[in-house]
Amino acid sequence: MQEEKEILLKIKDPASRNHGFNLLVKSYQQRLYWHIRKMVLDHNDTDDLLQEVFIKVWKNIDQFREDSNLFTWLYKIATNECLNFLKRKKNKYHVSIENASNELYNKLDNNPYISGSEIQIKLQKALLRLPDKQRLVFNMKYFDDMKYEDISKITETSVGSLKASYHIAVKKIEEYINLD
């Protein structure tokens, strides 16, 4: 929190604005990168989206309310960018949801920046069968070990719904990974 306040103070001062923003980027780039990457899988797509996220942050930082949590605000922007990107991908060229998922499936099999054990890849394929928002919730809870309260602020969904969503996601995934 202290770090957040110092960064925001520097950004507010025109003399140290660039330096402050640079500190913000360095502090959050990795967390936001992995948050996006787990959703879009491809490094180049993640790189594009991460730049878009920080450009949006740069343009709107004056509107950020200091009583809010900077981390939550950044995650919210990144989450929206991710979900919009996936939606655009599905709408583009009238690609069906199944075909869009197949494209992501292929990325898991043929990508120089993805390498894992057979069961790890199978887990990622199981995740692709979930609706995007459920996959997002699962990633934040399972991989990032985030609190439901924090996920609730980012996704603007009640803690109860998130718990139910996560529970259903786990059941679906275990069913898939135990197939054949």
């Binding site: 990168y33 992995w34 990457r37 490094h43 920046y113 993805i114 887990l123 399972y142 786990v170």
Partner: peptide, 21 residues
């Protein structure tokens, strides 16, 4: 699910985070 290794399977190009800012 807990039997599966949680380590990330995703890699980034060398020096990506150093060069990103």
């Amino acid at each position: 699910l807990e039997d599966i290794n949680k380590d990330s399977i995703f890699k980034v190009p060398e020096n990506y985070f150093e060069e990103f800012p």
